[in-house]
């Protein structure tokens, strides 16, 4: 499986550099556009010293973890994000006659490698935040950081799969999706405690963003020693179950796309 993924990766690279000029221009613009996100945060903190007790580097840490997860999905799992295309043009038929999992093939089929610059940025910001925060490092701190990064990646994966399942009901991609991915992403970039109760509820129990970057963040920056806070990113696996299940059910109702 790993071999196939790497082989697909190579193919994607070949595909993208086929048009050289466009590749270079896109890379440059991708790299710089997303820095503006971070500039706004820094600008904000020039006015206020903290937001509900979080300083600028804590916010940037929170921010970069969500960005990391999202950019990772956009880079490597782009195909799932654009699943409706496969249903519309019938490529899904092709996947179904190959002896591999559908989601895995979807991942391999389309990667948006240009987004790797966004991923790179998230990592750069993450590292800056970590250096400035004076973390008293320990093995549990390393584990919680890794858990946050992994669960952040998985939560967006889950959302992508969930919305992909919806394509089996109506071929049009769901705009509601953006409420949870783009909208959710923007909200979750900040510690969840700064929001009103209703929003906290949605992003805790419906889409568990709070479990991946708020509770573990509290543990990571030393506000609590409760081990549950550290392990809370594991909740993402509970979230993944209905996502994957709905995809499986959707596949059963697939009706193809003409001859």
């Amino acid at each position: 499986m790993v071999k196939l993924f790497i082989e697909s990766l190579k193919l994607s690279i070949k595909n993208e550099i086929e048009y050289k000029a466009s590749f270079i221009m896109n890379s440059i613009s991708q790299f710089f556009v997303f820095f503006t996100y971070y500039f706004t945060i820094v600008a904000l903190f020039n006015k206020f010293n903290n937001i509900k007790g979080f300083n600028v580097y804590e916010i940037l840490l929170c921010f970069s973890i969500i960005q990391f997860g999202f950019a990772f999905n956009e880079t490597f799992f782009r195909g799932i994000d654009r699943f409706e295309d496969l249903v519309i043009d019938g490529s899904l038929d092709r996947f179904l006659v190959r002896p591999r999992g559908i989601l895995f093939q979807t991942m391999c089929q389309k990667m948006h490698l240009i987004k790797i610059f966004r991923l790179l940025q998230a990592i750069i910001i993450l590292v800056i935040a970590l250096i400035k925060l004076n973390i008293s490092w320990s093995i549990t701190k390393v584990i919680v950081l890794l858990l946050m990064l992994i669960s952040s990646t998985l939560i967006f994966f889950g959302i992508f799969v969930l919305t992909a399942s919806y394509c089996f009901i109506t071929v049009q991609g769901l705009e509601v999706k953006n409420l949870f991915t783009d909208g959710g992403k923007h909200m979750a970039q900040y510690p969840i405690s700064i929001y009103k109760k209703g929003i906290v509820f949605v992003f805790t129990f419906i889409i568990p963003y709070a479990f991946i970057n708020y509770y573990p963040l509290l543990f990571f920056i030393g506000r609590t020693n409760n081990i549950l806070y550290m392990l809370s990113p594991l909740m993402v696996f509970v979230f993944l179950i209905p996502c994957l299940l709905s995809f499986k059910i959707g596949l059963k109702h697939y009706t193809g796309a003409g001859s």
Binding site: K3, L4, E7, S8, L11, K14, N15, E18, Y19, D89, G90, S91, D93, R94, R98, P99, R100, Q105, S259
Partner: peptide, 24 residues
Amino acid sequence: FGQRSQLAWDIPAEDTFDLLRDIY
């Protein structure tokens, strides 16, 4: 499927063949 291609459009067919080797 005569009306639908399984070959990647922008790269040589041989690369798609190599990929199929790994898929199967």
